[in-house]
Design a protein around this nucleic acid. Sequence first.
DNA 1: TGCCAATTCAAACGAGCGTTTGAAATATCG
DNA 2: CGATATTTCAAACGCTCGTTTGAATTGGCA
Lengths: 241, 241
Amino acid sequence: MSAATQPKLDTSSAQTRQALIEAGGAVFAEVGFHNATVREICRRAGANGAAVNYHFGDKDALYREVLAYYQARALQKFPLDMGVQPGAPAPERLRAFVRSFLLRIFDHSSDAWHGKLISREMIDPTSALDAIVVERIRPQAQHLAAIVRELIGGQADPETVRLCSFSLVSQCLFYHHCQPVVSRLFPEQKFSTEQVEKLADHITSFSLAAIKACSRRGEEAERPLAPKKSASSPRRLRAAR
Amino acid sequence: MSAATQPKLDTSSAQTRQALIEAGGAVFAEVGFHNATVREICRRAGANGAAVNYHFGDKDALYREVLAYYQARALQKFPLDMGVQPGAPAPERLRAFVRSFLLRIFDHSSDAWHGKLISREMIDPTSALDAIVVERIRPQAQHLAAIVRELIGGQADPETVRLCSFSLVSQCLFYHHCQPVVSRLFPEQKFSTEQVEKLADHITSFSLAAIKACSRRGEEAERPLAPKKSASSPRRLRAAR
DNA sequence: TGCCAATTCAAACGAGCGTTTGAAATATCG
DNA sequence: CGATATTTCAAACGCTCGTTTGAATTGGCA
């Protein structure tokens, strides 16, 4: 199977590297790091079985490169705010967050493995998870927490903010994590782009209503541990401290 | 550890079988079917490495037995309705459902692997998933759907019911599926029994408010004698007011 | 062209896995 | 007790995995 018939514009080495990264993205996203085999990655890349070790050192190093590569692509393709202005109303920013999150995970284009890779990393972590949490997940969590905090208003209890953020993210992740079950329960459920938009609609409105309720509940019963400070805010407090 | 009641009245074979099932439950729940090794299960059971094949045939058969064993235990320990009457108000039944779901997953007692096993099966399915969906998950889904349908009231749109059910289940599963990330983001987050109760409170009230909003949205859309279905047009972002 | 470094290749290595094997140990029973 | 069936055991088999190896091939350059 010699491919020597066509001239090589780019250096052959760089071509092989790139092919390995792309095949690796596909395989890692499909079956996860632990179930992925170097042989399958090399086969899809049209490279020899020793190519991964020659170009990257070992499977772990290839995985880190794959992660970094698609992370960079995803950041420019799906920015956290989805192009929505930071000054936009919080509900609108929330919807942008949810859409961005879902589109990252369900993007069917061939070079969009980042969402699936991170989604897998959440469930079956590798040594790369620590860096991912710091570099990608924590900033997203803080971004989301800021939106939720603004939605709740007043002095939002950090624990409430955290719980609401988790409730949001969990809904987004569910359809990818539990796809095997969902597709067995409802075989008609598809994840086309328009279905994803519907999903984003549902998750956003579902959660907006819920957060607003949290906000009301928080206003009624405020400070859990501040008996000294008698905040004189009887009913609809907006007490700015 | 087990069967300290009688020295050797029980047959040695049955003892070994039971020890393998219990060790298997622990290992499968901890690392999942694919990452679990027969050797480790035998080691924990204090049995020889060939014991699994002798008593069960192969690893798959042991796994099926483990699943069946803990399924039976879980059914009597955590019934779907958690002892709440079928005639109880829907919000109360919803809360029972959420508590039951979370307790199954986070039960720290040593013989309660069922929730973790099914949770793993959702993510990384084995050939046992088809049966699990039919025998366990679908009944739970129908149970939950009935509650959600009643909460929404009126003629609840089946798709809305499905989406709301998924939103509920996803929140319950999240903390188990994404524990590696959650514990890195918030190292102080524990999953003690009382924390689980707090979680159940949050998920229940969060979702009740959201479903109530879905209900109102549905009523508005239906009352003016129902245009066909214009639900996919650009939806307003205003939350329930 | 001829040389040399870079790259590719088929083959094999060693480790870990589920499983098998045949003998040893133990229980069962006429 | 002695014969027979059951259960345990250490060892090894066959397989797949990531990785290594050394030779073959290729590409750049004097």
